[in-house]
Amino acid sequence: MSSAPHAPAPGDSLAARLRHEAGINLNHCYQCGKCAAGCPVAEDMDNTSCQTLRLLQMERPELDRRVLESEAIWLCLGCETCSTRCPQEVEVAKVMDYVREASLALDLAHPRSRDILAFHRAFLDSIRATGRLFEIGLVANYKLRSRHLLKDVNLAPKMYVRGKLPLLPHFIKGRSGMKRIFQLTLGRKR
């Protein structure tokens, strides 16, 4: 039996917080590398998944920071191949979700994550406003946020012709409820 984790203090390591808040014990990882071996984006990452876990395992502030500032955590697609194959049943994809949130909270997100973040924010803006995703709105918002104004300009007309781009959003009835959900969760995180 592992001893019950103490409630983590603000200055505590990410590993301690993961254990307390998400029930993930990183000491289970024995650094076999199977997660990295199967990761579809491993070769594009600055830290492979097992390196990320290793950095977190040491519970040292400077190493935690290397994780929070890395690009790798933004490249993880959450495909769960790592968690599925991990012999020690470490939920690696959940760890990635957790450290991304921590990175945002401390404003340490990697510069090259800007576009990825812009996309996710634009996506959530769209559903906050209407309740359902409005794809034209998403793309327009993303382009403004990311300044990639000319990206995929050829694709939109093709999609429109094929009836894949409705020009008007769907508005759900429970929009006030949706706003409340965003207020109580994402809050002022932007």
Binding site: L77, G78, D97, Y98, R100, E101, L104, I116, F119, H120, R121, F123, L124, I127, G131, R132, L133, I172, G174, M178, I181, F182, L184, T185, L186, K189
Partner: peptide, 16 residues
């Protein structure tokens, strides 16, 4: 029905 949050919500906030 509303959007499920798809691949974006979990990147930014686990409660959302």
């Amino acid at each position: 029905w509303s959007c499920c949050g798809a691949s974006s919500a979990h990147v930014l906030d686990h409660r959302l």
